[in-house]
């Protein structure tokens, strides 16, 4: 479905990705793990077209999408959920969802239908349509961010830091929604600091260190690799 071939990327003079090969198959959940600054988010940005790789190729269903701008990638229904807080804090929940459907152009009927459909997943947000997003709690904002990425009916969903700063109960709710979506055939790439959580729902996993892939294989197998995971746990304990 999606393949990264020998991708190298730089921020200015600093190389952040070294020869990344990565694959996502139909209907899979892939966990992308690693320490802070290992390049996980950069990989997602390369896929969604926010960041252009210096070398290598990004192939989507046999077609190279390398170098496409974000709107064109989005048109192929590859959606990245932004990391951190991905809402527009000065807009209402409703407006946030409307902006998420910006790529629909002037097709307001389709936008309206999608918003209703998405809000069925998130009854909590449906009750707060008029509320300004900046005044929502952290968990609700994350929920809204996730809801926004459902608007365009993704085929591939790239999730950046789902659990960051959220209570375990909320994380569980969000994960359930993602699993439901995955059962409907949406492939997911999940980047998360929380290793156990990511591995609990992933089929396969990649482990990154300083811009290079150190491990790729079934999620279960990575669980046994304490030598790799220790660095993440140590970083997590410090943070």
């Amino acid at each position: 479905m999606l393949r990264l071939d020998n991708v190298h990327a730089f921020y200015g003079p600093v190389q952040v990705l070294f020869s990344i090969d990565l694959e996502v198959n139909d209907g899979e959940i892939v966990a992308l793990l690693g320490t802070n600054g290992a390049g996980k988010t950069t990989i997602l940005r390369v896929i969604s077209g926010v960041k252009h790789p210096a070398l290598g190729d990004v192939v989507w269903n046999g077609e190279s999408i390398k170098g496409l701008r974000p709107p064109d990638v989005l048109r192929r229904r590859i959606v990245q959920m932004p990391g951190g807080r991905g809402v527009f804090p000065g807009m209402s929940v409703q407006e946030n969802l409307e902006v998420a459907g910006f790529s629909f152009g002037r097709d307001s009927e389709r936008l309206r239908r999608r918003i209703e459909a998405v809000l069925e997943f998130f009854p909590l947000l449906a009750d707060r349509r008029r509320q300004v997003a900046g005044s929502l709690s952290g968990g609700q904002q994350q929920m809204l961010t996730l809801a926004k990425s459902f608007i365009v009916e993704p085929k591939l969903l790239l999730i950046d830091e789902l659990s960051l700063g959220l209570a375990p109960k909320i994380v569980e709710e969000l994960l359930e929604i993602i699993i439901r979506l995955n059962r409907d055939g949406v492939a997911v790439v999940l980047v998360d600091q929380h290793v156990d959580l990511a591995l609990s729902i992933a089929n396969r996993a990649y482990f990154l260190e300083r811009g290079e892939i150190r491990f790729s294989g079934p999620a279960k197998k990575l669980r046994g690799r304490d030598d790799l995971l220790r660095s993440v746990f140590l970083a997590g304990a410090r943070a």
Partner: peptide
Amino acid sequence: TRTGRALRAVAQNREAAMLAGID
């Protein structure tokens, strides 16, 4: 307006706006 809203989205959260398909 639609364009005005797109500009506000970029102003409030550039990355999220780009990921929503706003140029």
